[in-house]
Design a protein around this nucleic acid. Sequence first.
DNA 1: GTCTATACTTGGATAGAC
DNA 2: GTCTATCCAAGTATAGAC
Lengths: 219, 219
Amino acid sequence: MAKAGPRTESGTSRARSADVRDALIAAAIETLAQAGFAGASAREIAARASCSQGLVFYHFGSVNDLLLAALDEVSTRRMDAYRRLVAEATSVTGLADAARSIFIEDLNSGYVRVLVEMITGAQSVPGLGERVAERLAPWRDLAESAVRNALRGSPAARLLPAPEAAHAIVAGFFGLEMLAMLDGDSSAALAVFGRARSLARLLDVLAGVKVPRSRRNDR
Amino acid sequence: MAKAGPRTESGTSRARSADVRDALIAAAIETLAQAGFAGASAREIAARASCSQGLVFYHFGSVNDLLLAALDEVSTRRMDAYRRLVAEATSVTGLADAARSIFIEDLNSGYVRVLVEMITGAQSVPGLGERVAERLAPWRDLAESAVRNALRGSPAARLLPAPEAAHAIVAGFFGLEMLAMLDGDSSAALAVFGRARSLARLLDVLAGVKVPRSRRNDR
DNA sequence: GTCTATACTTGGATAGAC
DNA sequence: GTCTATCCAAGTATAGAC
């Protein structure tokens, strides 16, 4: 039986501790997205989490390990939503629509930016690159299965092998995000997605695939 | 007439000074490409240039200004070569070939990496992003005129408006570079360029354009 | 578990000798 | 113009009080 004493009751204290952990991860994501890898110091992150800087090291051991935890959080949080979206895409047009809405969501939430910062920032820290690559693998797999799913049974599959198409799509996400950060504006990226949809639709029509109707009225 | 004295003869001394300036710029490029923005400190760059760290500030005022000078150097050094390459591309296939050889050259020399590092790194330094954007504008203009040139008179021009196509191409360069740094390997990027060429060729054939023969034997 | 204080390191930037 | 020495700010990480 638990003996009485100062109120360090296990459930409560564990919950509070986990709260801080979560707050630090959320702050790390926010910091990566707003200040970049170079700006993501223990002090800056702790300030955003409204806790002491020492807790970064208590909970995660090092700043880089916290950043990797943030990357994990971003991955798992989005992966489910994306898997669902992508499963619905059974045509090239559908794939283009899915890619577009994923891009918009992630652009607004800053998640793609987190990936971009981690990929480039990791290059200046020996050994970090590999750990980032591991965490990105599921995203790349998802992109590849999305392409496979969208092209299943389409003659376009011969023109667009899934591995290369997936690689190009992932690269496109990252590159468009970079240009959007540079411009402080994502309208050009959105225009590219719009155009991609038209081309996708053309591919579907040529292949005789039943094509989803446009969501917007682009006559 | 110049009076005799300690050998600080103007021509020689100015030449030596310019040598150091150039060495610092070359070292900055190398450092950005190999250690990234976060690793590009005045001390690290000076060490690679085999001179004292103080000279960074004497010649450039600040590290960031040196990095911008490095970006300028990369831009001007490549722009001429690219303009020539791109002027020769008068079909979509030709454009794909030009893009491919530019990518390979820049990947090996690390120039794209310099751009990627500057774009992302600049986000953590207030005001630097704008200055990077200015320097990137000519590249984006070049891409756009390349597209215009390649599509001149082709029916594909209606499908691929130059601004959007150019934006996508630039984004593709950056994204493929990022994935190549992540993988430590550019074979996947090269495969994408190979596939892009096939698709470009298909576009040209459909449009009835005279298509350059393949350089490699892809039957 | 959390905070404050502090040791230690690295990096930007300047001063002064040569 | 270049180097050495140095100052100062910011960052990582740890120690010890609570």
